[in-house]
Amino acid sequence: MITFLCDHCGKCCTSLGAYIRIERQLSEQDYYCKNGITGEIFPVHVAPEFAGEIDEDFTSGTAGSRQGCIFLRRNPAGPGFVCAIYPTRPRLCREFRCYHMVIFNARSEPVGRMVGRADIQTADPVLARIWNDEVKPLPSPATPCCDPAWLERVRAILTAHGYREEPVG
């Protein structure tokens, strides 16, 4: 199993973040938030460098008009985005993986990623064809990335064509 590596693209926070709502402000850096999917209430602590920004968005009423999560911020140290509450982010965010499997060619080069329920991101036309012709037609459980039988079938298909997969944990 390989480790998930975040590339700070911000896509997860743009989509999932819409479900994170501030319920109550406790201080300039502390809030109670609600997960709109599960109803879970959780405390968060904003990193000092973002405290004023979050407070301003929340108190001005612009938080609800933002696309995505109010805690998603441009990375001041480089490209991409960062989470202003990363150490105290909710379970929904902690468990999210934007890809569930990395696929390697015969030279052990990463050539594809399984994203979503069972889609693929790849520039390898052979892998794309194999995925669309042989993997996509498989009966798909609700969460393929967690179904051992489905994963074993995918592993067998990929191996037969000279590829290997590693789940992301």
Rank of each mutant, 00 (worst) to 15 (best):
M1P: 02
T3F: 01
L5R: 11
C6V: 00
D7E: 09
H8G: 03
G10I: 12
G10A: 09
G10R: 10
C13I: 05
T14A: 14
T14K: 14
L16T: 01
L16E: 05
L16W: 14
A18C: 08
I20K: 01
I20M: 11
E23C: 06
Q25P: 03
L26S: 10
L26W: 04
L26E: 13
S27R: 04
E28R: 15
E28A: 09
E28L: 13
Q29N: 12
D30G: 01
D30A: 14
Y31A: 04
Y32T: 05
K34A: 09
G36W: 03
E40N: 10
E40S: 01
F42G: 07
P43G: 06
H45W: 03
P48C: 00
E49A: 10
A51L: 05
G52V: 09
G52N: 03
E53C: 04
E53T: 13
D55I: 02
S60R: 11
S60F: 10
G61E: 11
A63Y: 09
A63F: 09
G64I: 07
G64V: 03
R66G: 10
Q67G: 14
G68V: 01
C69P: 08
L72R: 14
R73I: 01
R73A: 00
R74M: 12
N75C: 01
A77V: 00
G78T: 00
G78Y: 11
P79H: 13
F81R: 05
V82K: 11
C83R: 00
A84E: 04
I85G: 02
R89T: 07
R89S: 00
P90I: 05
L92E: 09
C93E: 10
R94Q: 15
E95T: 12
F96A: 14
C98I: 12
Y99R: 11
V102E: 13
I103D: 07
I103Y: 07
F104A: 08
N105M: 02
E109F: 05
E109T: 12
P110D: 03
G112D: 07
R113G: 04
R117S: 15
D119R: 12
I120R: 05
Q121M: 11
T122D: 06
P125F: 08
V126K: 12
A128I: 00
R129Y: 01
W131S: 01
W131H: 10
N132T: 08
E134W: 06
E134K: 12
V135Q: 02
K136L: 15
L138W: 02
L138N: 08
L138D: 02
S140T: 11
P141Y: 02
A142F: 09
A142R: 09
P144D: 07
A149E: 15
E152Y: 09
R153K: 15
V154F: 06
R155Y: 04
I157M: 00
L158M: 12
L158I: 06
A160F: 07
H161S: 10
G162P: 07
G162E: 07
G162S: 03
Y163R: 03
Y163P: 00
Y163M: 03
Y163D: 01
E165I: 12
E166Y: 13
E166K: 13
V168N: 08
G169D: 15
